[in-house]
Nucleic acid binder design. Structure first.
Length: 466
DNA sequence: AACATCAACAACCGCGCTTGG
DNA sequence: GCCAAGCGCGGTTGTTGATGT
């Protein structure tokens, strides 16, 4: 049941899409939207199944795709999210605007897995490989039935103890805190016994070997509520972790947003207030939405006054680049149609605007200058198909920055947790840029190459609209 | 230059869930 | 409530280009 009928139909093309097919699909969706995917191929004159069309559009042709190589920050974020969410690629992708689940999945399987193993971290459990091996031996000897649980928990746990070796002292400190906390929280109910670890870097490895991520958060959550049910506050050992959110808040504050005490309201919103233990997943969206209630009205430096949509679009169409850059070296007025927050969607976030504001120059250099070649009316047309507003979540450059050191090979000198106070003010945007421009040339050229490689046919496809 | 190997990425397949008749 | 159609997701495979021998 539920099988896609077209899968069995004959005469349907399979395999790689030709430029002509892409063009047909783009034209059709541009004109009519996709509506019912099963009817798309028919209406668009394609010998493909609707499923294939959908996949092609979502993973490749969508104009809001970021494409290009993943940044270190993005990779770190993926690792962290994977530690919490496991192989829920779509959920991970939702936190990485412009990236598809397929893209992230491929990256994980082809690159990140390998990197983690090289660093002695098991990509499935996010534990050190040695511990994983030990546990596997032990569990294999004692209980074969645990295999299923291992499978079930595969990738859904985390242990960012890659920093352990270098920060044992700090580690010990946290260990003591956690022990104390755990003793007071033995009521915690565990749902996934084999889901080891915690997301928190520096967390104790040995005592949490059988501790799940969810369990950990539950413990901490309960602990915080035990002590203060009316004003939830993260226990000490979570505060490091929350610092990233604080950083986010600070960043927002610095750019003109105000958020209440990041240790109280904003932090409490980090989790769904009604979350059960199995749902104790950081709620990036709500964390941000708290901040998002205040609409910014600020100006940010930019090379052009792009609308968010423009930024998105031109990230994909670098090869239309014969036209020159936009003339203005103006500012982005983060209001109305060029706001972080979509005026039509409360709490929704235009990641492109944020990216522009944060100074994502690497790709901007490549793409922004296409602006003048595309009319505003087309922007409107295209925007109709960008129906999913991107939530700020941890998509912000600020958040990415906070994750910067995590899992990175160049560990932070002291603890790996020394999230510096963000300076994502107006200038902080460029500050972030500066930090991430450690490899600007590489990124720009790589992105340019990739875009050139994959999008060279798009200009023709869109030529009629420009 | 030819071949082998590897990595990256696009696309397919199958399952489960949702929805509407 | 049942069933079929449609959709979305995750796992897997196939293809292509890069690199090494």
């Amino acid at each position: 049941m539920g099988r896609h009928s077209c899968c069995y139909k004959q005469k349907l093309r399979k395999g790689l899409w030709s430029p002509e097919e892409d063009e047909k699909l783009i034209k059709h969706i541009t004109k009519y939207g996709h509506g019912c995917w099963s009817s798309v191929p028919k209406l668009a004159g394609l010998q493909r199944c609707g499923k294939s069309c959908r996949l092609r559009w979502i993973n490749y042709l969508r104009p809001d795709l970021k494409r290009g190589t993943f940044s270190v920050e993005e990779e770190n974020l993926i690792i962290e999210l994977h530690a919490v969410l496991g192989n829920r690629w779509s959920q991970i992708a939702a936190k990485l605007p412009g990236r598809t689940d397929n893209e992230i999945k491929n990256l994980w399987n082809s690159s990140i897995k390998k990197k983690l193993r090289q660093r002695g971290i098991d990509p499935n459990t996010h534990q050190p490989l040695s511990e994983v091996e030990t546990e596997e031996k032990g569990s294999a000897a004692s209980n074969n039935s645990s295999k299923k649980n291992e499978k079930a928990s595969e990738g859904s746990s985390s242990e960012l103890n890659y920093v352990e070796a270098s920060v044992s002292d700090h580690h010990h400190h946290h260990h003591q805190q956690q022990q104390s906390s755990e003793q007071s929280n033995k009521l915690a109910v565990l749902e996934k016994p084999n889901n080891p670890s915690s997301l928190i870097p520096l967390m104790e490895t040995t005592t949490t070997a059988a501790t799940t991520t969810h369990e950990f958060f539950l413990n901490r959550f309960l602990s915080s509520h035990d002590s203060s049910s009316t004003s939830p506050k993260p226990p000490p050992d979570l505060q490091d972790y929350f610092s990233f959110q604080q950083q986010l808040n600070y960043g927002l504050t610095n750019i003109g947003l105000s958020v209440n005490n990041p240790n109280s309201a904003a932090t409490s919103s980090f989790f769904h207030p009604n979350s059960r233990s199995s749902e104790m997943v950081p709620d990036f969206n709500s964390a941000v939405s708290a901040a998002a209630r205040i609409k910014p009205s600020i100006s940010l430096p930019s090379e052009s006054s792009l609308s968010p949509f423009n930024v998105n679009k031109f990230q994909s169409w670098d090869n239309c680049s014969t036209s020159n850059a936009s003339s203005s070296t103006g500012t982005i007025e983060l209001q109305s149609n060029c706001s972080f927050f979509d005026s039509n969607n409360n709490n929704s976030f235009s990641w492109a605007a944020a990216a522009a504001a944060a100074g994502v120059k690497a790709e901007k250099n490549v793409h922004i200058h296409h602006q003048s070649s595309i009319s505003d009316t087309e922007d409107i047309k295209w925007s109709e198909y960008l129906q999913a507003p991107f939530l700020l979540g941890n998509n912000s450059a600020t958040t990415l920055q906070s994750h910067q050191d995590i899992y990175s090979e160049t560990k932070s000198s002291s603890s790996g947790m020394n999230f510096t106070l963000p300076e994502t003010s107006l200038n902080g945007g460029s500050n972030w840029l500066q930090q991430n421009q450690q490899q600007p040339t590489i990124q720009v050229s790589a992105a340019a190459e990739l875009y050139n490689k994959h999008f060279q046919r798009l200009p023709a496809a869109f030529g009629q609209y420009s």
